[in-house]
Amino acid sequence: MGELLALLSALCFGITHFVNGLVSRRHNGLTVALHAQLGGTALGLSLVLFLNGGAATLADYGWGALSGVGTGVGVAFLYRAMSQGAMSVVVPVSDVGAVALPVLVGVCFLGERPAAPAWVGIAAVLPALWLVSQSSPDPGDRQRRTVSAGVPSALVASVGFGVQFLAMAQVRMDGGLWPVVVSRVVSVAVIAAVLGSYGADRRLTGRSWAATVAAGALGTLAIVLYLEATRQQLMAIATVLAALYPAIPVLLALVLLNEHLNRRQSGGLACAALAVGLIALR
């Protein structure tokens, strides 16, 4: 059951990022992230009022807040990246750290010892990032390769999502849903601070607002499913399965948006998929 919940979480995350990625092409990505998290906060409050809120401790709230910081950084810079570059490139880049960071923290601070295949997966992360970030050369200069637009922001998002998954997995089994609400509230505060530093317009109206808020609510459902998955399954398995979410926006972008990948980017995506699979064997 835990595996199914994690896969449903990945599906919800994937749809969320695809919808908000489309909106980010017409509006500031940071503004989209802010309204998405507001929609997610509203759903979180609704769930906790109608369901058993649990008995969260101060530590649970702390982990929820840290997860919110990661969420805020992750979605803010992912949607900024998707407003700058191809969705089929920046979304997978934002995912590698979401898998690798929990492994590295586990090794360095929690005493975990990954199996040999997981170390190979960790080693595959860097070449995967380099390959997938390579755009096609200009017609007049076939020897020059440039970093694809949006990849730097996607790398920042990658760290944020790693913190999100790692921190939320530390909430105790009987911690309830209040830590999720705290996470959403903190993410709104983080995004608002980033948005203010860029001096961007915070307004979003009409269909774009409705789509963003609905997608944000789906994102909160995704994190609730992920939290429940970690309570029924090992964190390693739940995290890796939930981190399969890029498959959804990448496939939708290739099919519906007619995005194309060059050979290096295709190889990079394959390398990233291999890295995720091997890390899952830790």
Rank of each mutant, 00 (worst) to 15 (best):
V186D: 03
R144L: 13
V194D: 04
R202Y: 05
G196H: 03
V163A: 07
A149G: 14
R145K: 07
V163C: 07
V156L: 13
V159C: 11
A169E: 10
F165I: 13
S135Q: 09
A210K: 04
S148N: 11
V194S: 05
S135T: 10
P117L: 09
A214V: 14
A167T: 09
V163T: 08
A128G: 14
A215T: 00
A118L: 14
Q170I: 08
P152G: 07
V171F: 02
A189Q: 03
S135K: 12
M168L: 12
V147G: 07
W178S: 14
G175H: 02
W178E: 08
W119M: 11
A123E: 07
M173A: 15
I122R: 06
L204T: 00
A211Q: 07
L204K: 00
S135H: 05
Q164M: 15
L126S: 09
F161D: 01
S197T: 10
V147T: 10
V132G: 06
Y198M: 06
V182F: 04
A115L: 09
Q170S: 09
T212K: 00
R203I: 04
W209A: 07
R142Y: 13
G140S: 15
R142E: 14
G196E: 01
P179T: 06
L129T: 03
F161N: 00
A157R: 05
A115G: 07
D141I: 09
T205L: 11
A128W: 02
Q134E: 12
G121H: 03
M173N: 15
A200R: 14
S136I: 08
G206H: 00
G206L: 00
V163E: 03
P117N: 05
A116D: 11
Q143W: 13
M173K: 15
L126D: 05
G199I: 00
V163L: 11
A169W: 12
A215Q: 01
D201S: 04
A124F: 07
V151D: 01
A157S: 13
M168S: 06
A211H: 06
A124P: 02
V125Q: 08
Q164A: 08
V156K: 13
A128D: 04
A149Y: 04
R145Y: 04
L177Y: 09
A149V: 11
A192N: 03
W130Q: 14
A154W: 00
G121C: 03
A124S: 04
P127H: 08
D174G: 12
A123C: 10
S208R: 00
Q170N: 10
S183V: 09
A149I: 13
S197I: 04
A118N: 10
V147I: 13
W178P: 10
G150L: 02
L155W: 01
V213K: 08
Q143K: 13
G175P: 00
Q164C: 11
